[in-house]
Amino acid sequence: MTLSLPAARTVDLRKEPVSHVLDRVERALGVHLDRETMVRKRRSVGARTDRDSWVRIERRGLDRIGKQGWDGAACAEALQEVAKPTWFGGVSWREANEGVMWRADETALLPGAPVGTSIVAVDPDVSDEWWAALNASLDALATQQSNRIATPDTETITQSLVNETIWSVFPRSLDTTVEQWRLAHADLNWANVTAPQFSLFDWEDWGMAPRGLDAATLWGASLAVPALAKRVRHERREDFASRDGMLMTLFVAAKILGPHAHPEDPRLEPARAVSAQVIKELQTG
């Protein structure tokens, strides 16, 4: 007989005690974590080590891990010509009395500071060289293949998820069939890239996804700064002009405009405006 565990509790690691988790990671990886450098987010904690590396620790419910496992940072070492920190090692374990797993990955230090929070309100003013490096990495990523399936927002992206997400906000008469699946980072926002030297980190959710997912995700994270959102669309214009890029624009916009939207979110109006234009193009194209 299989014993079921309680479902994973909703936990915010910015508020939850994590000393016992840090102690376990130190023993497993043979490092000392500098608590003064610790960065705490809702689902993850990171800190510098005594051997000039970085350890990122994440908590995730078993229902959010999926069939492909949870070793995205390690598997990303196989990717070629993508600017990212080198992975050194990792450890994972399951909570004894809860349907939760923890995973810690040790990587090289980032070449610069994260550009900002995931969604920015001020233009980060990155250089033309930075945009060129972003494009080179995304273009290189798109040419490679994997058995992994991307999990944006920890949900496995499928045709059904694309349909349901878009149709939850936009007309169900839209044909949302995806034609091109390409490798994507799947969490491309301003908190997961560095500057002035470009690097893309936090590779837990990468995998095959509809073309344009990364471009649309970064666009959605930039909408509060119109000039920045416009720059994203210009830099990744071939993705946005593709049919699947249009669908991913609606996919991301639907998450912004959905039932949990905050009425004062500055991204609402630009998301509506672009979505209306995209729908018109899809219906007449």
Results as ranks from 00 to 15, higher is better:
residue 143 T to Q: 15
residue 148 R to P: 02
residue 78 A to D: 03
residue 216 A to E: 07
residue 284 T to K: 13
residue 83 A to H: 14
residue 121 A to G: 11
residue 190 W to T: 02
residue 186 A to N: 05
residue 252 V to N: 03
residue 171 P to W: 09
residue 216 A to R: 11
residue 252 V to K: 07
residue 58 E to M: 03
residue 75 C to H: 02
residue 158 T to K: 11
residue 90 G to L: 05
residue 284 T to H: 15
residue 112 G to F: 14
residue 136 A to G: 02
residue 124 P to N: 12
residue 177 T to C: 08
residue 71 D to R: 10
residue 140 A to F: 12
residue 172 R to A: 15
residue 138 L to K: 06
residue 258 G to F: 05
residue 268 L to D: 11
residue 279 I to E: 09
residue 138 L to Q: 15
residue 193 V to S: 03
residue 36 E to L: 00
residue 157 I to S: 02
residue 275 S to D: 10
residue 227 A to H: 02
residue 32 H to V: 11
residue 64 R to E: 15
residue 188 L to I: 08
residue 280 K to I: 01
residue 105 D to F: 06
residue 238 E to D: 14
residue 118 S to W: 12
residue 260 H to C: 05
residue 17 P to F: 08
residue 164 E to P: 00
residue 26 E to I: 01
residue 199 S to V: 07
residue 176 T to G: 12
residue 21 V to R: 07
residue 67 K to W: 04
residue 265 D to T: 11
residue 42 R to G: 01
residue 229 A to D: 01
residue 108 A to F: 03
residue 157 I to K: 11
residue 218 L to Y: 03
residue 270 P to S: 06
residue 39 V to N: 14
residue 213 L to A: 00
residue 124 P to D: 14
residue 140 A to P: 07
residue 171 P to N: 01
residue 282 L to Y: 13
residue 260 H to L: 08
residue 50 D to S: 05
residue 264 E to L: 15
residue 123 D to G: 06
residue 49 T to V: 11
residue 98 E to A: 10
residue 33 L to S: 10
residue 178 V to M: 04
residue 136 A to M: 04
residue 218 L to N: 05
residue 197 Q to E: 14
